[in-house]
Write a protein that binds this DNA or RNA. Structure first.
Lengths: 344, 344
DNA sequence: ATTAGCACTCTCTGTTCACGAGTGCTAACA
DNA sequence: TGTTAGCACTCGTGAACAGAGAGTGCTAAT
């Protein structure tokens, strides 16, 4: 267990290092107000903290920097809610005030504002559409062989795909198909749509229209809604301003990570209640081993969840980011849920 | 006018510098086969070429590198068609062979293959949808106040938007509206849809349904199809491997450029027939002053055009890129036009 | 017209050196 | 016993410098 004085010193070191990016020396600490010990005393404490694994040195006679364990202790025990300025809160709120705006646009804006306020990189996952329910099927013929199949969900999300029609599949066939689909599948959530189509609907369709299996196969494509949601970035290049990213290789790794959807989504895993902070190697990915990732989820209505992440250097202003993220999460959840309810 | 020997030397310098990224010296040139002059002779010629503005030195006793004017001369006069390997051609063709694939997917793949083959960054502009014609309108009600308005075009493109319905706008109103829209607007190209809606359609609608102006205002939103097309990237991080981009500032500028849609589109301007090569400052943009941008257009059917660009360092393998780009352009035009015709 | 030879310039790399910041340890002190 | 002053030691940084290597421009010879 750490003594009060050790906690105090750890806190000062983290706070100082976060802003300066320079190893913190004993003299520097002793000059901080609230600290009334000589540098020598502080050196002794720092040696202890290092032995316990909370601090590190960059070289034998440098000041100390927090280790991952040190950051972890800091975020678990020393993090205090900060006040962010009224102006900043207003900036966040301003996104939600515009009434007409589309959901997608709100999220896009949020990503930008988050990155601006934190000067780190913001990633937003759009709300998962797989829980949406089918509101209406539609098939619009384009030519004798092709048509567009459309699914509208109860939230106004639209999926579409051009499909090939079987030879001789005429408009009465289309009409029958659409009727059966709407009758049988309205209200079905997208994530189980494919299996429903394949099993129950196929039977019925087969009895009433010609070449049902061909048309079902086409429809399966539309129903295979990307189960990974859309990704929105803000401040993708912000990391280039951080001194720890003066290394080309790190930049490349990070940029490549952000190009790969699956890896970006992996950053959010596992999803937990509240705000999650993952420091450096806790992210289990080389490209972000010098980064911390702070994630949280927002909810739209009861079932759909989206997620927010801020990626910054390990030397991140955790207090500030946590506070901002919390404001944003609440705002998004409230606003998007309202929009959803308006729509039902 | 340059002598044959000067041309020969210019060509060798460009070719050599393209692969080595190092200033080329006289001794090095004299050892190339096809060159039968001593280093001293070559030095004299190089001094002349420098005086004429085709070559530059990085410092007073370095070898020479091509100036922008040198590159310009090279691409205008010395570029010879290269053969790219059969394997590479096959790789490109392979994208087009898969029959089922969607247009969007073909373009996405093309961007990736292009960046892989060139090891530069590829940008593709999707075909402009503003020339598509309306095939079908649809309004799907979600609740009493909201609905989704959908436009399907003759090419199978789908635009949708949630709209607010006027108080008391019931399903018979919706039906009437949709009928009028389809009757009046089928076949109208998207780029003039808004004005048609606002003028002619408004009149008619106003006579038959309740609160027509409110509904028209909502529909205008759907019709405001983004006139700038979708952008697809391949190998966004490839530039990080180029030695001229060891400078953080340049990287940042380039990355930021690629985040801004309008600036990316500006890179393609002006669009000209055939393949356009813009070298360094010819691009009129700081972020790409050390880059060359090679662009070309592909066509889908008769009217729609998409565009392809390759961004690399000025020290780019122009011959290879031009050849690859040409293969890709033809392939894309042919394949996408076929897909389009299948659909009509 | 071409080329060999030579002096000169500039970059690059490695070395040395002094400086400053910071530490760990010991001994003195309250 | 906890705290502090003092001191020797370590290491990173930046400047100065030297030598090697690559390449040039010029002159004189071919």
């Amino acid at each position: 267990m750490l003594t009060d004085r050790q906690l105090q010193i750890l806190q000062v070191i983290v706070d100082d290092f976060v802003t300066s990016a320079q190893p913190v020396g004993s003299r520097q600490i002793s000059k901080k107000k609230g600290i009334n010990y000589s540098p020598a005393t502080i050196r002794n404490e720092m040696a202890d903290l290092e032995e316990l694994g909370y601090l590190e040195k960059t070289h034998v006679s440098s000041g100390r920097i927090p280790s991952e364990k040190g950051y972890r202790y800091y975020v678990d025990h020393l993090l205090q809610p900060t006040n962010i300025s009224v102006g900043e809160i207003n900036l966040i709120q301003s996104i939600f005030e515009n009434q007409i705006i589309e959901i997608e646009q709100v999220i896009r804006e949020s990503a930008n504002i988050l990155s601006e306020l934190t000067s780190y990189t913001a990633i937003l996952l759009g709300p998962n559409v797989t829980k949406h329910r089918v509101k209406r099927f539609q098939i619009v013929p384009l030519s004798k062989q092709t048509a567009v199949a459309i699914i509208v969900t109860d939230n106004g999300h639209v999926e579409s795909q051009t499909i090939t029609l079987p030879e001789g599949f005429d408009s009465s066939n289309i009409e029958k198909t659409v009727n059966i689909l709407n009758e049988r599948l309205t209200g079905v959530p997208l994530n189980i749509l494919q299996s429903k189509l394949e099993k129950e609907t196929y039977e019925v369709l087969n009895q009433h229209v010609y070449m049902a299996d061909s048309i079902i196969r086409s429809l399966m494509k539309v129903a295979s809604v990307e189960n990974d949601s859309k990704i929105y970035f803000g401040g993708k290049t912000n990391m280039l301003n951080q001194p720890e990213f003066h290394d080309l290789n790190k930049i490349r790794q990070l940029m490549e990570l952000m190009e790969r959807k699956s890896q970006v989504i992996a950053l959010f895993q596992p999803v937990e209640q509240g705000i999650t902070i993952r420091i450096g190697s806790e992210n289990n990915h080389m490209a972000v081993e010098d980064c911390s990732v702070i994630t949280t989820a927002y909810s739209v209505g009861e079932e759909q969840k989206g997620a927010i992440a801020i990626i910054g250097p390990k030397r991140m202003d955790y207090q500030r980011v946590v506070t901002i993220l919390d404001v944003m999460r609440r705002g998004l959840s409230r606003t998007l849920s309202e929009k959803l309810n308006d729509g039902q």
